[in-house]
Amino acid sequence: MDKSLNLDQLRSFGLVIETGSFSAAAERLGLSQPAVSLQVRQLERRLAVRLVERVGKRAKATPAGMELLRHMPHIDAAVENAIDALADHASGIAGRVRLGTGATACLHFLPAVLRGLRERFPELGVVVSTGNTEDQARKVEENSLDLALVTLPVAGRSLAVMPVLDDEFVAIGRADFAPLKARVAPGDLGALPLVLFEPGANTRKLVDRWFAAQGLHPQPVMELGSVEAMKEMVAAGLGHAIVPGMSMAGRGAHPELKTSRLNPRMHRTLAVVMRRDKPVSKALRAVLDAIVAAGKPGRR
């Protein structure tokens, strides 16, 4: 048996039983009485059962009709849920957006952005992956990511680059162990044991250039890919580090660490990169706008 059902026929049947009259149901539906009668007969033929019978002057449901009525609230709810879900897609604020970023921004910048997006657009899913700038830019170019939040500079002729925020670097050390001055220069840090980012990362290149401008080329005691690992090593008294300021702000603050500003100051610029030819859906626009809005206070 074909298990498809005509929703208009179901509605006509339900209103006939609710009102007790084909003519009253027709008036509610804005149809003629013969049209409603035809829909009910077609539904009965479709199901091969009698659904309506007359009891006196009223139309009543047969036992089979009563069984169908028992299921109709579930049918109505399923249809309503489907329509609501499609309405979300029609508005564009639904579906999935693939976002790449670095580990530090993932920990210390994106959580508030993603929470706000979920509260505003519960049907929107943002799938986040982490990696270095080069890898994330390549994935955007390959269209395996819709956009990425990365540390500049970034290469790629097919990429559009939108700066979002400036993140100033700070030096960190144990608060109770050889505390640093309020402002430190390359010469203050060059002779100390240093815990730095792994080679090749854009953040490491910035730090190396900061030292090199003063003719210094320190040899770190550790080279790590995680800013949180760097902070823990410094907290253990194993050295000092230069880290993005966002990693020490708010919930990123560490009770055993003291921060010092750099002299000269150094910052990195985080930017959103997308393919220039990428169609910007409403869902993608919502994610992009949320990232840019969150970055505005940080453009210091």
Rank of each mutant, 00 (worst) to 15 (best):
K60F: 12
L10N: 05
F13N: 08
M66T: 14
L288R: 07
P264H: 10
L145K: 04
A61P: 04
V287A: 04
V243I: 15
L288T: 10
A236D: 11
R45I: 09
V195G: 01
L206Y: 05
E232H: 15
V97H: 06
I291A: 02
L110I: 07
R118L: 04
M72C: 07
H240E: 13
M274I: 10
V128P: 00
V113W: 01
F169K: 00
A201D: 13
V154N: 05
F109P: 00
R276K: 15
F121W: 01
G131A: 07
I172Y: 06
L224K: 02
K278A: 08
V36G: 01
V97N: 05
P244A: 09
A25N: 06
T101P: 00
M246Y: 04
D146E: 06
L270H: 10
P218M: 05
P34I: 07
L31T: 09
E223S: 13
L192P: 01
A249R: 09
A236L: 14
V140C: 06
R46N: 13
V280C: 09
I93K: 04
G30V: 05
I83C: 09
G239A: 11
H254M: 12
A87Q: 15
T151Y: 02
S158E: 13
R268V: 15
R275N: 12
G156Y: 05
P199T: 10
L117W: 01
W210M: 06
D176S: 10
